[in-house]
């Protein structure tokens, strides 16, 4: 294992994060605060409780998930896309590193950043609503698992993308709609019966509900199913990354 290489990549990526502190940390925190003001305070005060928790508290896990997914994907995608775009990827390809080390470095850094962000949003929301976390270990577990899985997914997008538009299209056109329709702001039980069935095909439903369960002990789907679905997606992403590096797809001529 080339530990020095993992450390080098990880530090390089984290340095990029801290260099762009405003963009990478401050702006998601600000936008989440705005969600709280609008949905939590203004609208939430007229909503009443959802499943025994106040609406403001109810949306916290969903909001964290929203940022976690978007940031994990865009971070990791950008991290590996930039060297491809700038041509500096030659160094990575010519270095004595295995794909496992490359993935640990890039995905590890992207996931770290997302987790920090998730915790920051959690802290920020404390300013607006009070909440408790019933299963803190599960909460941290879901946070890590989701951050790693979607950083891996973002890494794949970064490898696949050959222009900036492709880099943006998946987070914007796929992830954001799925998150909004994934029960971040509502309980599935609020939907008409037909949509309750359809929405179960949305993978984000499982993420949000698993995470929400760790907060309030209640969710629309079983927590084991949630965790299983996330791990399943993680394995799929790992398989794809393994295949990409084995074949050199989009990396080596």
């Amino acid at each position: 294992m080339n530990i020095h290489a993992i450390r080098a990549i990880y530090r390089f990526e984290m340095a990029r994060t801290f260099r762009t502190l405003m963009q990478s940390i401050a702006s998601p925190v600000l936008s989440t605060s705005l969600y709280f003001v609008v949905f939590g305070a203004a609208i939430g005060s007229r909503m009443g409780n959802v499943g025994g928790v106040s609406y403001g508290a109810f949306i916290i896990p969903g909001l964290i998930m929203l940022s976690l997914l978007n940031e994990s994907i865009s971070n990791a995608a950008f991290g590996i896309y930039m060297p491809k775009w700038a041509g500096t990827i030659y160094e990575l390809l010519s270095a004595p590193v295995s794909y496992v080390e490359v993935v640990i470095g890039y995905v590890g850094a992207a996931a770290t950043k997302s987790v920090i962000l998730g915790l920051l949003i959690l802290g920020t929301s404390r300013l607006f609503v009070s909440y408790e976390i019933m299963h803190p270990f599960w909460m941290v577990g879901f946070l890590l698992l989701t951050a790693i899985t979607f950083s891996l997914f973002g890494f794949i997008i970064g490898l696949w993308a050959d222009d900036f538009q492709k880099l943006q299209v998946v987070p914007l056109m796929v992830i954001t709609p799925l998150t909004f329709l994934g029960g971040s702001f509502y309980s599935i039980s609020m939907l008409p019966p037909v949509w309750q069935k359809i929405t179960l095909f949305n993978p984000v439903v499982y993420l949000v509900n698993g995470f929400r369960w760790s907060f309030y002990g209640k969710a629309d789907v079983n927590v084991v199913v949630s965790a299983g679905a996330t791990v399943g997606f993680l394995l799929i992403c790992l398989g794809i990354v393994w295949w990409i590096f084995r074949t050199g797809w989009k990396l080596k001529a």
């Binding site: 290489a5 080098a8 700038a86 590193v97």
Partner: peptide, 30 residues
């Protein structure tokens, strides 16, 4: 192996010191 490529492919925002340090680490050296 060390390679100096033909194209001037460098990071933009990194410092000279950071990028050289990165290269050394990437190639597995303390």
């Amino acid at each position: 192996i060390g390679l100096v490529p033909q194209e001037l492919s460098t990071d933009a925002f990194e410092s000279v010191w950071a990028t050289v340090k990165f290269s050394r680490g990437l190639f597995g050296k303390a």
